[in-house]
Each structure stands twice: as structure tokens, then as C-alpha cells.
């Protein structure tokens, strides 16, 4: 039984910079994996590698055992790997409904444009955007745009959904709503990867955590274990603080 997605010794270089350094990571079907790491740790790069936007310079990405390392982004999308963007990327002059329908028609299961629109309306209702379906996407508020990203991802009928900072810039009640929505998506059987640099958010929702630092995977496991990890604390808070914390605990 192979994992849903596995990265094997994946590296990605940009010029002299090792944005991802020999990362090996498995994602099991049905879990919510939280991917943590300070800014610039390589979290978004990892998503870009998986989705084929910036293919790995070395190593392999396997989807249920199938090598997808060098596939074009649109092919990977059609295999049921969906993502949202940290900086939201709507089609500004299309309606909200059309935005979502694009996901349903090109990557999802919709056999026709009409059917795609119908399915998309359901996804919009699910994400609480049903009432703005006919508005141009450019008129949405930031919180709504983040949800639109989510709806687009869902419309792709994904097996695996990667959420890149869907909570950034939201206030606390909006964050709570978003988290509830992510749980409901997971209940539908979608495997989820959540990227956040805010620990609190990830910890409440993830079933497992992985931590990147300077492109390398430094810890992986159940939330409690990972958060107690000395290396992780150092990465986040710096060595001195970690030492003090350890001293204080003693």
C-alpha cells in the first residue's frame, strides 16, 4: 500500500539557492498534514514542485506510486491535485461562478460547461459564496477571495488539496470559519495539506505536522511531538530562546 503522495529526496534549486533540500515526505490518504516553517523555509516551493510549476531539480514526486515529477501543471491538476494560492489568483473579469467553473470544467469531472456551472454553484454554496456567484471576481473582499480559492480547488474534484496560507490576512472569526470549512472538506474524504506560518492555526486542525527550515525537513510526526522538538523551537524562536525554554523546563 503506497502513500497517496510521496516525495523522495526532492531538491529544488534556484540559481545558487537550495529552496528545497533533499526532502523525503509521505502523505497518507485521509490525513490533514500541517506544513510549518518560518518565512522562506520552502513551504510554497514544495507546493510548486508537487504541482509542476517549478519541477524538482532532483528526486521524485509519486502520486500513488506513479511518477509525476516532470508532468506539466495542467496534467497534474487533472490527476486530482489542487492548490490554492497564497496571493489569490482569480480571473478578475469573470464572475465568481465562472471562476469556480473553470476548475470544474478543466480539471474536475464536469462533462460540459453547463454541468460545470451547476456543480460550481454547489461549491459556492458550500463555501458561503452562493450569494455573490454572479459578481465579477474583482469585486470580492479578501476573505471572500480566499474562499473563492477554496471553492476553485474543490471544483477540481481533488484527491489532494494544498492550501497555501488560506488564513493569512483574515480576522479571528474569519479564521474560525475557514478552519471549520477545511474540516468539512476533509470529512468528504479529501486529503489536505495546510501551509501556515502561524503555528496556532495549523496545530488546531492538523492530524500530523511536518516542519521545513531552510529548505530541509527538520521534523515530522504528531503535533505534540513535533512542537516539543528542540530543533523546531530553535527554527522558530532562535537558539537562545530555545535554550532558555529548555532551562526553564528543567
Amino acid at each position: 500500500m503506497s502513500a497517496l503522495l510521496s516525495l523522495e529526496n526532492v531538491s529544488r534549486r534556484f540559481g545558487g539557492l537550495n529552496a528545497l533540500d533533499n526532502v523525503t515526505l509521505k502523505v497518507e490518504a485521509g490525513e490533514i498534514l500541517g506544513l510549518l516553517g518560518p518565512n522562506g523555509a520552502g513551504k510554497t516551493t514544495l507546493i510548486n514542485v508537487v504541482t509542476g510549476v517549478h519541477p524538482a531539480t532532483s528526486g521524485q514526486v509519486l502520486l500513488q506510486g506513479e511518477d509525476i515529477t516532470r508532468l506539466k501543471p495542467y496534467r497534474i491538476a487533472r490527476k486530482g491535485l489542487a492548490r490554492t494560492f497564497q496571493i489569490v489568483q482569480p480571473f478578475p473579469r469573470m464572475t465568481v461562478l465562472e471562476n469556480v467553473a473553470a476548475g470544474a470544467v478543466f480539471a474536475g469531472a464536469a462533462p460540459s460547461l453547463k454541468e460545470g456551472m451547476r456543480l460550481s454553484q454547489e461549491h459556492l454554496d458550500f463555501t458561503g459564496l452562493g450569494h455573490v456567484a454572479d459578481k465579477p471576481a474583482s469585486t470580492l473582499t479578501l476573505a471572500q477571495r480566499k474562499r473563492l480559492e477554496l471553492a476553485k480547488g474543490l471544483a477540481m474534484n481533488p484527491r489532494f488539496l494544498m492550501l497555501d496560507e488560506v488564513n493569512a490576512g483574515l480576522n479571528s472569526s474569519e479564521v474560525d470559519e475557514a478552519l471549520a470549512m477545511i474540516r468539512r472538506i476533509a470529512e468528504r474524504g479529501v486529503t489536505i495539506l495546510v501551509i501556515e506560518h502561524l503555528m496556532k492555526v495549523v496545530v488546531t486542525i492538523s492530524t500530523r505536522l511536518a516542519v521545513l527550515h531552510h529548505g530541509a525537513l527538520i521534523a515530522e510526526g504528531p503535533p505534540k511531538t513535533v512542537l516539543a522538538d528542540r530543533g523546531v523551537i530553535e527554527a522558530y524562536l532562535g537558539e537562545k530562546y530555545a535554550a532558555r525554554l529548555a532551562g526553564g523546563a528543567r
Binding site: 504541482t51 510549476v53 506539466k72 501543471p73 495542467y74 491538476a77 487533472r78 492548490r83 494560492f85 489568483q89 482569480p90 480571473f91 478578475p92 473579469r93 469573470m94 465562472e98 467553473a101 473553470a102 476548475g103 470544467v105 478543466f106 480539471a107 474536475g108 460547461l113 476553485k152 477540481m156
Partner: peptide, 24 residues
């Protein structure tokens, strides 16, 4: 009216996002 035109409009508005949504 068809899928081709829809895909082209996606490309026109944001090609990278279109690719990620499965548009060839």
C-alpha cells in the same frame, strides 16, 4: 461558447492560474 473559448478567456486573465486549474 465552448470549452476552448472559456479556457482562452482564463488564459487571457491569468495564465498561471489557468494552468493550475487544469487548462492546457
Amino acid at each position: 461558447r465552448g470549452k476552448l473559448g472559456f479556457g482562452l478567456r482564463c488564459i487571457q486573465q491569468n495564465e498561471d492560474a489557468a494552468n493550475i486549474l487544469g487548462v492546457n
